[in-house]
Simulated scan of single mutants.
Amino acid sequence: MGVRQVAAGLLVVLLCLVTAGCWDRRELQERGFVMAVAIDLAEDGQAGGSALESYTRREGSKPLRLSVQVLKLTPSGGGSDQPKGEGKTYVLSNTGVAFHEMVRDMLGQTSKGLYFEHIQAILISEAVLREYSLKQMIDFWRRDAEMRWRTRIFVIPGEAREVLSFQPPTGEAGGIFLAGVARLYTRNMNIASAQTDLGAISQVLDAGGDAILPRLEYKDNKVKVNGLAVFKKDRFITYWDEYTIKGIRMIRGNLKSAVITLNCPLHPGYGVTFEMFRHNTILEPHVEGDKIYFTLNTAWRGNISEVACQQYHDTLDEKFQEKAEELLAEEITHNISYSLNIAQQAGVDPMNFARYLKAYEPETWNRIKDNWEDIYPTIPLYVKARVSIQNVGEHK
């Protein structure tokens, strides 16, 4: 082996020694893992606040209050020094005009650096969104490289900071629990959390679309994702209920499972429940001269999951199934029409009609885009719904 080969081998070994490990290594116990953040107006909840949760600014104005939920790390092994009944997180707060500045000033309240790589939820109070735009409230979170774009965003009717004190019955950190609730939208039509994380909302706002976010209620140490916060572009306007959410999700086609209950036409007060496990939904724009309209073809397949008046019916009977399929298709059509009417009256387009028209009929879009606000409420949607019952469960 020549001198050059030996020198090259030594150089490789030396480089391995120099570059081994992580250049920014920090021990786990030295990190303060932020699970969730809450944004409120500074004057809200000041009775429970502290003069320490602030800092001096030249102008003196501190209109916003940022609170962070930090994970408590407990020793590994068989035991834990954490008192029974105590939460797994603690909360830090600060007031100011810029979130980055508030985060840095919070380091005066903790012995651990705040680490946002695992943030799960951003909670924004309704009061804040009536004063500021949604873009202003998420700007820092989508610029910072530590943030994750799958972070869930919620709108809180009351004080957002209160939710950070929530102790989930599952024993996990509150931010993790809330993100888990949001992910269950695949099985719950009433949860409007499909495509409402930080990344999806950023794309909607960058494209000039209308944002929608799940509404989160907190009371007596209980939480529920309940309703939909509606935005015109990035300005909050109102809330919509669960029935409206269902229709919007039917149009958007982001359902993986769905449960629909009908009142039995022969036995009022009794319900027949259908569980959808597969669907094919196609939304298409059409242009005929000056007329613009949309069609929605949706085909659902699923099972009868419950019949409250089962003693009066043979669910294996073809006539029963055909009638149930007909009524279910009518209910789907009605729900879609109801939700579209609510959206068009508000001038909000969560179904992405504008995006579809721009993609499939670009010439028409270029011609009408300046008048879209006036045209959108007049656009009809023709719905064709079909339902196929595949099974009736383990018992007829």
Rank of each mutant, 00 (worst) to 15 (best):
P83G: 11
A51C: 13
F140D: 09
F231S: 05
Y90S: 09
K72S: 13
A51P: 12
D210T: 01
P380L: 07
F353T: 12
S80W: 08
F116M: 15
Q109R: 06
N341G: 07
C16L: 15
L328W: 02
N226H: 01
T56G: 04
P268D: 07
L381M: 05
Y270R: 10
N335Y: 11
P157S: 12
G49P: 08
N280Q: 14
L14M: 06
I304L: 10
I375V: 09
M351A: 13
N94S: 05
G253M: 02
N297I: 09
R367E: 06
M351W: 02
R215Q: 06
R215V: 03
V97H: 13
A47G: 14
Q311V: 15
G347N: 04
L41I: 01
I248A: 04
L73W: 01
W149C: 15
K219D: 10
I292Q: 00
F33P: 05
T378N: 11
S80P: 13
K224G: 12
V13E: 05
K256H: 07
R367D: 03
P168Y: 00
A42Q: 02
I304V: 13
K222A: 11
G171Y: 06
L213Q: 10
E330N: 14
R31T: 10
G158Y: 06
L14K: 01
G79E: 11
N188G: 13
S76K: 12
K369M: 15
N190D: 13
I245H: 00
Q82N: 11
T56L: 09
W365P: 00
W141G: 01
R65I: 03
N335E: 15
W372V: 06
G9F: 05
G347T: 02
K291G: 01
D44C: 04
A343E: 00
A329F: 03
N188T: 14
